[in-house]
Design a protein around this nucleic acid. Structure first.
Lengths: 338, 338
DNA sequence: ATCCCTTTCCAAAACGTTTTGGATGATTAA
DNA sequence: TTAATCATCCAAAACGTTTTGGAAAGGGAT
């Protein structure tokens, strides 16, 4: 493969001059530069980014650490949408993305920090990490610039982007309250996740705001899984048939609840209102189409990349980005029968 | 950041010895090795992969060139599923993946080959490329190991993985013929795509096999877009109401056709049978659930990575991988009314 | 005492860049 | 004429590894 040395030899100049010519420095004669550029094209030279990165000590690369990049994670396109946003921003700013594949086995032998240092990424975006993930601790210790999706970590070198999950849930509750619902249950995710806590908080605040009673038996966990939500929904709805609406912490779980209702012969939305969270593609295609709190995942990814670059270029003290969400009213919610 | 030199200094040995110790060579004393390893851990050494790659002339990295990594491409999770498969294989074989962001603007100034050479990827997987994409030509010229998804390119250094699209379409037609359909139309993608041609061929073969007439007016292009398919479907079904079934070259287009039928007051599957292709997540969730030819996209990605590594390690002469597909019969097809 | 293995180590070159700190000669200002 | 400025170039060091081709020392066999 052609190198800068080859060009130097052909052009009869030093490698210094070639380097400076190709990088647009002013201390090289116009004719020399032209000749060099011609030769470069001629022999199909392309710079070796490894060598360049090595000496310049920066790689123009960010790492992506995702735990949802598995066969199962494909149902909701959350990971993918965020990735798309990241990709968009990075493309515009000439950064490349390397996917770290952190299979469980490898996670043991190599730490997060090692992974990043080895690959010399300038920063990392972490997604789909659980609160008890071993990686999470390291992020705090390491001083590698880092942006988390939906995990609140703040430090000199770390920040996060999330949506206003409290407000999101409140929107859902408010909507149901306005439709006349009073006995509202919640299908939450699991206890460890930050967003679960926030969405629960929003649910409770919403209920308080509407002056409705919060009954702890009506708050169950579906583990963000469709089938688990169906199972728990079935239990909930048989034990407490007076429940007329359930706020879910994810769309997939909402689908599970809808299915549970069907199983019990309760029509959605006539005999049960259900709201989701996320607005995954499925949400609008399914029948009945899901009323849900839409998150702009693309923008989350885009913002995450933006925030990361601002951290590592130290252009801002900002460490948190809050993306707005929006309640999309579709066909799984309806005013309660008088 | 700690380097091999630091270790050498602390251990009182040469860098050579450190390198050899850390890489498991046998010509280093057990005690020395142990001391070196301890120091390495102590000062949190991690090897600089840039330097290593530079001298060894290999990066353990493959590139990923996708043209569907945009906001629009998110509806079907095709790109994502394939990516997941690639990631899985690469994880198991210690290869990293770098995402090339080929925005349209950059595509002009930097060629495919330049992109790859610069980043020193050992090989590339290309997905979502159209037959008239400028990159496609380069792939043939360049000698960079390369695997395409669903684009038939074969050479010393290039191969592809695809499903048996001819057979897939035939399965769909056969199924419809068995249900008694005789007037079967086809909603194809666009002319440039390889898979479109194959699926069309399968359609025609299937019709011949079932001894049914092929009418060219009944074969239309929906450009793989839901709305376009709806529009074309509307025209087709109003012009030729005698059509009782339509074979679609993608699930998204099938959804469009179903929608067109609804618009015309024709119930699916009672008054019109529709088959899709891909088995995207939506297919099984939508009502009525789509009868479709399922492609195992995960396996396609997995195989693509496998094939690529076999090409670049020259462990096999194989250049093509055919993944099986399967007809999933759901609720958009029904036997014709007598 | 000599020769030949082993074991254990290392100096130096190489990978392909960028950057530093001038050097050279020509032009301009005094 | 001399000094200062300018335009153009370059040698060498540096980045952090791996690899090559030995060297040195110790132990056995003869």
């Amino acid at each position: 493969m052609a190198t800068i040395k080859d060009i130097a030899k052909l052009a009869g100049v030093s490698v210094t001059t070639v380097s400076r010519a190709l990088n647009g420095y002013s201390d090289v004669n116009a004719k020399t530069r032209q000749r060099i550029e011609e030769i470069a094209k001629e022999i199909e030279y392309s710079p070796n980014s490894l060598a360049r990165s090595l000496v310049m000590n920066k790689t123009k690369t960010i790492g992506l650490l995702v735990s949802g990049l598995t066969r199962e994670g494909a149902k909701d396109n959350i990971v993918f949408d965020v990735l798309t946003g990241i990709n968009e921003f990075c493309g515009a700013h000439d950064y490349d993305i390397v996917l770290f594949n952190t299979t469980t086995s490898k996670q043991k032998e190599k730490t997060y920090a090692q992974l990043c240092r080895e690959r010399r990424v300038e920063g990392v975006i972490v997604q789909g990490i659980k609160n008890d993930d071993p990686y999470l601790l390291e992020i705090f210790d390491s001083n590698i610039p880092c942006v988390l999706i939906d995990v609140p970590v703040e430090s000199e070198t770390a920040g996060y982007v999330t949506t206003d999950n409290v407000d999101g849930s409140m929107k859902a509750v408010r909507h149901l309250a306005e439709l006349g619902h009073e006995n509202i249950a919640m299908m939450n995710g699991h206890g460890q996740a930050f967003v679960s806590k926030e969405r629960l908080k929003g649910f409770e605040l919403g209920m308080l705001e509407a002056d409705l009673p919060i009954r702890s038996e009506w708050i169950v966990n579906g583990e963000y899984s469709e089938s688990k939500a169906q199972e728990m929904g079935l239990k909930l709805l048989t034990a407490y048939p007076e429940v007329t609406a359930v706020v879910c912490a994810s769309d997939l779980m909402a689908l599970g609840v809808v299915r549970a209702a069907e199983q019990l012969g309760r029509k959605v939305p006539d005999q049960l209102s259900v709201t989701g969270y996320d607005d995954i593609t499925l949400a609008s295609y399914v029948t009945p189409a899901l009323t849900t709190v839409a998150q702009d995942l693309f923008r989350m990814g885009y913002s995450a990349a933006d925030l990361l670059l601002s951290i590592l270029h130290q252009t801002s003290e900002e460490r948190v980005r809050l993306i707005e969400n929006e309640l999309k009213i579709r066909n799984t919610t309806k005013e309660i029968k008088q």
